[in-house]
Computed example of a mutant assay.
Amino acid sequence: MRAFGVIRAASLTLMLSGGAAQAQAPAGSESLDLICVGSDAALMAMTPYRNSIGAPHFGGVYYGEARVPAQLGVRVENGQVRVKPPKSAVPLFAKDAKDGWYVLADVAVDRLSIKGRLKWNRIDRSSLTVDRRNGAVTFGDFAGVCQQAAASADTTKF
């Protein structure tokens, strides 16, 4: 009985001392894959509008920002966090990605959150924040909710 208490205390100490610098995947798995669905800001060109009597007003092209549906992928594996952003989130002069996945820097993974930063180029930067309690995610202008993806390729959801 006493040995069980010692082992339990040691495992609790190890869990608490893990800290934010060490990636912690869910129990029994080596990696964590998340699929996040939400919306992203996109630059849109708006065509000339019509005035109050219905005649077209040709004042040029107007540019604005609109929210568009988007999907974000997050992968935590071996202490490394990678992200697959929607195409609308990638800046024009972004560095190349391996199969669309970008490796994050300044990673902090703990029991309640996943955080990291991505340097797209010399100017553009985005930060990732995933709340592991409710699945809320933000990455640059993207905002959405994450769900855990299937562990194996042949696993079905329903």
Rank of each mutant, 00 (worst) to 15 (best):
D33Y: 07
L34S: 05
I35Q: 14
C36V: 03
C36N: 01
S39D: 15
A41F: 13
L43G: 00
M46Q: 05
T47Y: 10
T47A: 13
P48W: 14
P48Y: 09
P48L: 12
Y49E: 15
N51H: 10
S52H: 07
I53M: 13
G54A: 15
P56S: 03
P56W: 14
H57P: 04
H57D: 13
F58L: 07
G59V: 04
G60T: 03
G60S: 06
V61S: 02
Y62S: 15
Y63T: 02
Y63V: 00
Y63Q: 06
G64S: 10
G64T: 14
V68A: 04
P69E: 00
A70Y: 03
G73M: 01
R75G: 01
R75P: 02
R75V: 03
R75Q: 06
V76R: 01
E77A: 06
N78Q: 07
G79C: 05
Q80R: 13
Q80N: 12
R82V: 08
V83S: 08
K84L: 09
P86Y: 03
P86G: 06
K87C: 06
K87E: 05
S88W: 00
S88P: 01
S88D: 00
A89K: 14
A89V: 11
A89S: 15
V90C: 09
V90L: 11
V90W: 13
P91L: 06
L92N: 04
L92F: 13
A94T: 08
A94S: 10
K95I: 13
K95N: 06
D96T: 14
D96C: 13
D99R: 10
D99A: 09
D99L: 06
W101P: 06
V103C: 07
L104F: 01
A105Y: 00
A108Q: 04
V109E: 02
V109G: 07
R111M: 12
R111A: 11
L112W: 07
L112T: 04
G116R: 00
G116Y: 00
L118I: 12
L118M: 07
K119P: 00
K119S: 12
W120K: 03
W120G: 00
W120R: 05
R122Y: 08
R122P: 05
R122K: 05
I123Y: 06
D124Q: 14
R125G: 03
T129E: 11
V130D: 03
D131C: 07
R132E: 14
R132A: 14
V137N: 08
T138R: 08
F139V: 09
D141N: 10
D141R: 12
F142K: 11
A143F: 01
A143G: 04
A143T: 08
V145S: 11
C146N: 09
C146D: 05
S152Q: 05
D154S: 14
T155A: 10
T155S: 10
T155G: 09
T156H: 10
